[in-house]
Every structure is written in C-alpha cells, then in structure tokens.
C-alpha cells in the first residue's frame, strides 16, 4: 500500500540505477541522494558518508567512469548513468591495482576515507592518462604535453579527498605506484599476445 502511494506521488519516483553492472529498481523520495540510496536502500555501504556537503570526498564514486561525490548527486538524477562503487572496482578476487597499492603501501589508517580515496585515485589516473592538466601543471597548453604524474600533481589532483588520520604520504605513494602499474598494463595491450605486462 505504502509502495503504491510512493509510486503515484509527485515527490517520489520508481527509478532504475545501474550499479557495478547490475540494475536495481527502487522507489525513492526525490530528496534521496545517490549516497543514501547506495547505503540505506541497496546495502552498498562501502561508499562512506563524511561531510554530506561535497567537501570531504569520502562518498566518491565513478559516474560514467568519472569520479563524482555521491552526496550531491540526487539518486533520481543518476538514472541512465553507469555507477561504479568501491564494491565494483575489483575484477572478481583480483583487486584493482589502486586497491592493491593502498594495501601494499599502507595508504590508510582507520580506513573510513579509503573507498573514496580509491575511487578518486582511479579517476585521477584515467584523467591523467587522457592528458588532463591540473592546477599544479605549469603549462596547460596541449603542445606542452601531459605533465608527469609527480607527487605534486597527485597531491593537487587528490585534494578533494580528506584523510583525518593524515595518511597522505602513503596515499600519494600508492597512487603513484598504481598509476605506474596501469601505465605498464596499457603499454602491454599493444604488445603481441603472450608478452603482456601481467608479470
């Protein structure tokens, strides 16, 4: 009965969200953020709520492959988009290179900001690979070519993710290592079969 009321109200809708490749249909009050839909309605609690104001980055997810904060994204407006959360970045039991690097290099202490840090870092590495400059890039003209992903570049590009434990030193190292691994994998795609960079 309640469900039917929700479905006919002008302030709620039945929506379908595509999350980590899977479709989820649910009724939502239009006020529901994507963050609350993930955590409170779909039991995808890997995405964390920090400030709920777009300032801390704990709720970072990937929308159509680009990093975004789920706390300022209305769930109803996220229909038709490919949503990737921390639950969806690994390849089965094989961790994403960014996850592996955070583990290997202790890129966290309490771990609360970590899902957001990892999703953000995945976005950073993609943006950098696509040649995007940052505020730390001295010459933004395309002729200057993409800047190396230095520690300064990583710090600037990751500045939307706060870590109250202050694990930043290891986070920067983990992002740098993962970027190197992914660059190797990209190069590996061009070499003949059997000579990939999996090792």
């Amino acid at each position: 009965m309640r469900k039917k009321q929700l479905m006919t109200s002008s302030t709620s809708s039945v929506i379908t969200l595509k999350i980590n490749g899977e479709k989820h249909t649910l009724p939502v009050d239009h006020r529901t953020t994507l963050l609350d839909a993930l955590r409170e309605r779909l039991d995808l609690t890997g995405t964390k709520k920090g400030c709920d104001q777009g300032q801390c980055g704990a709720c970072t997810v990937l929308l159509d492959g680009r990093r975004a904060v789920a706390c300022l994204q209305l769930a109803v407006a996220a229909e038709n988009r490919e949503i990737t959360t921390i639950e969806g970045v690994a390849d089965g039991d094989r961790l994403h290179p960014v996850q592996q690097a955070f583990l290997d290099l202790d890129g966290f202490q309490c771990g609360y900001c970590t899902p957001g840090q990892i999703c953000s870092a995945i976005g950073v590495i993609e943006e950098h690979a696509a040649g995007w400059p940052s505020a730390a890039t001295s010459d933004v003209r395309p002729e200057a070519g993409p800047p190396p992903l230095s520690a300064e570049e990583i710090r600037e590009r990751m500045s939307g993710n706060l870590c109250r434990c202050g694990a930043y030193v290891s986070i920067v190292e983990a992002v740098a290592r993962a970027a190197g691994v992914q660059a190797d994998e990209r190069r590996g795609e061009d070499v003949p079969a059997g000579k990939g960079a999996a090792a």
Binding site: A68, A135, R141
Partner: peptide, 19 residues
C-alpha cells in the same frame, strides 16, 4: 585561452569539476 583552463582547474575538486 589558457587562463580559462587554469581558472577552472583552480576551482573546487576533481570530483566537483566532473559534476
């Protein structure tokens, strides 16, 4: 218009700029 690219990059965070 490099100053325009720089101005946009100086604002907000990567996540917010994507939105």
């Amino acid at each position: 218009y490099p100053a325009l690219a720089q101005a946009v990059l100086a604002g907000a965070s990567g996540q917010l700029r994507n939105m």
